[in-house]
Amino acid sequence: MTTRRTLLAAAASLLPLPALAQGSTRPIRAIVPFPPGGGVDAFARAFVPAFAAQIGQGVVIENIGGASSRLGTQAVLRAAPDGHTLLITNDTLAAIEALPVAGSGPFIPGLAPVLLGASAPQALVTHPRSGIPDAAAYAARLRAGRPTNIGVPGLGSSQHFASELLAQALGGRPEHISYRGGGPLLIDLLGGTIDGGVVTLGAAIDQIRDGRLVALGVSGLHRSPALPDVPTFAESVAPGFEAETWMGVLAPRATPAPVLAALHAASLAALRDASVAQRLGALGFDTPGHGPDRFGPILRDTAARFAAVAGAVGLRACEA
């Protein structure tokens, strides 16, 4: 059945964004609310060049990290809704919605989903000299109550939620150390400053492959084809455990429908580009390519699930 949304999308796919934006040639800002070097940044840098080619104008990645992605997300909410500012983020957006902080948010009502581009497992990684060589050793350490510090890309991030869920399943709890993003976390982990860290698999995959870091496990129900030798936590220490992350593109809520349709068409075409798919696959990402009709409910459902987790493990907004 032909719908108004279908017609808009079809028409938009034939028009570059400048035509919809009254001839503007200024670059699009793609705001990543984390520092360089993390999983969202890796996704954005694989995706954005192809998106720029599809949309027909320049796209500049801006990394605005801090406050578990709140700072960068707020920058998008304050931007003009004209298609020239986008948010590229992960399910930490749902996590910060579930853990509101005074003077910050809500976030989801002010954003329009454009494309859910990728999903991936989280990975718990350690330094080779950490004394924690595998998931069983990690579980034993937590159960024994031995002090263990685990870095996460912000308290209240999706990685923090995943780590809390795993710890709950294992019967212990580490001390979580907050970082502005996965990049700074990995720098400290490589230097042996912390015992371990939870990051999106793609953020640490090169260091895992070359032996500088050890992956204790991944959070999906199935092993990642990108690292098939790394077990899932479900098969090793926590039956049924699953806590995958997703990454997507959003725009300010009031962006006109034809512009949103053009952004979606260009985003989906970029995601389906063979070189982008190959690069993301090598980083451990799946690329579902869900449009706004599916992305919106997934976003809201994820926020509700994180709110339930926060209640179960006792996370408070002030901890985020």
Rank of each mutant, 00 (worst) to 15 (best):
2 T>L: 13
3 T>S: 15
5 R>A: 15
10 A>Y: 07
15 L>F: 10
18 P>F: 06
22 Q>S: 15
24 S>L: 11
26 R>K: 10
27 P>Y: 08
28 I>D: 05
40 V>I: 13
42 A>C: 03
42 A>W: 07
44 A>K: 11
49 P>Y: 09
53 A>F: 02
58 G>S: 15
66 G>P: 12
66 G>L: 09
77 L>I: 11
77 L>Q: 11
79 A>Q: 07
82 D>K: 03
83 G>Q: 11
93 L>R: 05
97 E>R: 00
100 P>G: 04
106 P>L: 03
111 L>A: 06
119 S>C: 03
134 D>E: 09
136 A>E: 14
137 A>P: 00
137 A>F: 04
146 R>I: 11
146 R>T: 14
150 I>H: 00
154 G>R: 03
161 F>S: 04
167 A>R: 01
172 G>K: 04
176 H>N: 13
177 I>A: 14
178 S>P: 08
178 S>E: 10
178 S>H: 09
188 D>Y: 02
192 G>D: 05
193 T>I: 15
194 I>E: 01
195 D>L: 00
208 I>Y: 07
209 R>G: 02
214 V>S: 00
220 G>L: 09
220 G>V: 11
221 L>W: 05
228 P>C: 12
229 D>T: 15
230 V>F: 12
240 G>H: 11
243 A>R: 04
245 T>H: 07
248 G>W: 02
254 A>Q: 15
260 L>Y: 06
269 A>Y: 11
270 A>T: 11
272 R>K: 15
282 A>F: 03
287 T>D: 06
295 F>Q: 10
298 I>P: 00
301 D>H: 02
304 A>C: 00
304 A>T: 06
310 A>P: 05
314 G>K: 11
315 L>M: 15
320 A>R: 15
